[in-house]
Design a protein around this nucleic acid. Structure first.
Length: 478
RNA sequence: GGCCCCAUCGUCUAGCCAGGUCAGGACACCAGCCUUUCAAGCUGGCGACACGGGUUCGAAUCCCGUUGGGGCUACCA
């Protein structure tokens, strides 16, 4: 079996395209075969080389692998033209000498009468002899495919059997008057050439499929199996657009989502393996994937669910998997050149905070205090502590207690803090909370004793001393 | 307008094809537990078969219609 993902490089890789690519890959993996990447750049004006690279990069980042390509559709134009010529020769297509203006006018007239213009009802194709005579005389023409005069039916594994009555079908252009092939001709030619067996693409092509079926038949090529994926909607239930949030894969990457998480989320959008399975490894998805379980209805892309899935991957992945993805975000918060000697501390810190983060950006932010020589404390957040006149000296005692510890572990640190609390007659919490503030300038976070150990003895003492000094300088008298 | 497609909690969905479980799960939200705090985790709660007709002892499930969404109707893809 051979599948293809065939984006047109008129824009970046968006979530809809990415999901189509994912389903293609999943089907390929579950059935075995080849996955071909083909860039549909027949519209040269709107195609852009930078976009092609962006699409490939997006797929690579997501972890979608293709076996062949990327092939540029534009490289096949000569072959497509020859196909059109053969169709013309066989009388399966004909030269159309009407100008676009003429057609436009006829269409508008029909519109006024409340009708839809059907080319083949209004314009009798010229006889073959006349066609050749006028062409030889240098008259400009487009090549129009003669649709069969019968209904077209095909089966779609998402929709079931789809029937288009003969009256709804019309002859359509396969070669423009400048000799360039149109999309419909090119896709079919390439799908035939590449021996594609399964065509998975967006819903918007469902109505185009009868044209393609007509072409496949005229070419005497076996029909591939079709599957048309429903649209992905934004939270407003309208087609996903930039107005309502991120739409490109790169945006999601920059927002701090892991590729595995996005892949999982996108796979679940319109497909479900049943049995209430949601979080799956790629291998599990490949094993569980069947086209029969793809939904026909459009679905809203839920950012909250993606965030949750991302959080699950953030806490579930190994540090080895996680760290490379985190790197760019560390750089963004000024932690780009931490030196190898800090790797251990960094990993401990990441490990401590990963269950608290939803995105890589969150995580990078949380880790910042571990690598700052001193922290800025927020006066308002510290109001409570500033009112406690005994606190600076208690923290001083804590510094001494920590300094004298022979081994610096969560247990020994906890013991030291608790015994000091008992000594000075306060609850442990009365020392725990200011210590957390001292070390992280935050009022909440991981278990304090884990935090102290991850911070390290030297840095902990330094922050504690700084914080005590800050409190002495900013007291609130009561 | 014509043709084609779609319709279960706010969202993603299971169930539909082979009618018969309090319509199940997840996200979000709310509450409780855990706890030095915040998360995570655990427990519970809230919440849906778009509407109207049929067929049937019985309909989310089958049929028809309505409404609402979407696509195509290009010498765009």
């Amino acid at each position: 079996m051979r599948v293809r993902f065939a984006p047109s490089p008129t824009g970046y890789l968006h979530v809809g395209g990415a999901r189509t690519a994912i389903y293609n890959e999943l089907l390929r993996k579950s059935l075995g075969g080849e996955f071909i990447l083909r860039i549909e750049d027949t519209d040269q004006q709107r195609s852009d080389a930078a976009m092609i690279e962006q699409i490939c990069n997006g797929l690579s980042w997501l972890g979608v692998h293709w076996d062949e390509g990327p092939f540029l559709q534009s490289q096949g134009v000569e072959r497509h033209r020859q196909t059109a010529a053969a169709l013309l020769q066989d009388g399966k297509a004909y030269r159309c000498f009407r100008t676009p203006e003429e057609l436009d006018e006829a269409r508008q007239d029909a519109q006024k009468r409340g009708e839809t213009l059907r080319y083949r009802d209004y314009f009798e194709p010229a006889t073959k002899e006349e066609q050749e005579r006028r062409a030889a005389a240098g008259e400009s023409f487009a090549v129009r495919f003669r649709m069969p005069d019968s209904e077209i039916r095909f089966s779609d594994f998402v929709r079931g059997d789809v029937v288009f009555p003969a009256e709804a079908l019309d002859d359509f252009i396969i070669l423009r008057s400048d000799g360039s092939p149109t999309y419909h001709l090119s896709v079919v030619c390439d799908d035939v050439e590449m021996r594609i067996t399964h065509v998975i693409r967006g819903d918007d092509h469902l109505s185009n499929t009868p044209k393609h079926v007509g072409l496949f038949q005229a070419l005497g090529a076996p029909l591939p199996v079709f599957g048309h994926l429903p649209l992905i909607l934004g939270p407003d239930k309208k087609r996903l657009s930039k107005r309502t949030g991120a739409t490109s894969i790169e945006e999601f990457r920059d927002l701090g989502f892991l590729p595995e998480a996005l892949y999982n989320a996108l796979a679940l959008l319109g497909w479900s393996p049943g049995e209430d399975r949601e979080l799956m490894t790629r291998q599990e998805m490949e094993e569980l994937f069947t086209v029969e379980r793809i939904n026909a209805g459009a679905s809203v892309f839920d950012r909250d669910k993606l965030s949750w899935i991302n959080a699950q991957y953030l806490s579930g992945s190994s540090l080895d998997q996680l760290m490379p993805h985190l790197e760019p975000f560390l750089a963004e918060v000024g932690l780009g050149d931490l030196g190898d000697d800090q790797t251990g501390r960094l990993e401990r810190a990441v490990d401590l905070h990963r269950t608290r983060a939803r995105t890589l950006g969150d995580l990078a932010q949380m880790v910042v205090p571990y690598f700052r020589p001193s922290l800025d404390y927020d006066l308002d957040l510290c109001t409570k502590f500033r009112k406690q006149s005994q606190l600076p000296q208690q923290l001083g005692a804590l510094v001494e207690g920590f300094r004298n510890l022979e081994s610096f572990t969560a247990e020994t640190v906890e013991q030291a803090l608790r015994s000091l609390a008992e000594e000075v007659g306060v609850k442990a919490g009365a020392l725990i909370h200011p210590t957390r503030m001292a070390l992280s300038s935050a009022k909440a976070g991981p278990s304090l004793f884990d935090l102290v150990v991850a911070m390290g003895q030297e840095a902990s003492l330094r922050h504690l001393e700084n914080f005590a000094a800050f409190l002495r300088q900013n007291p609130i008298e009561e």
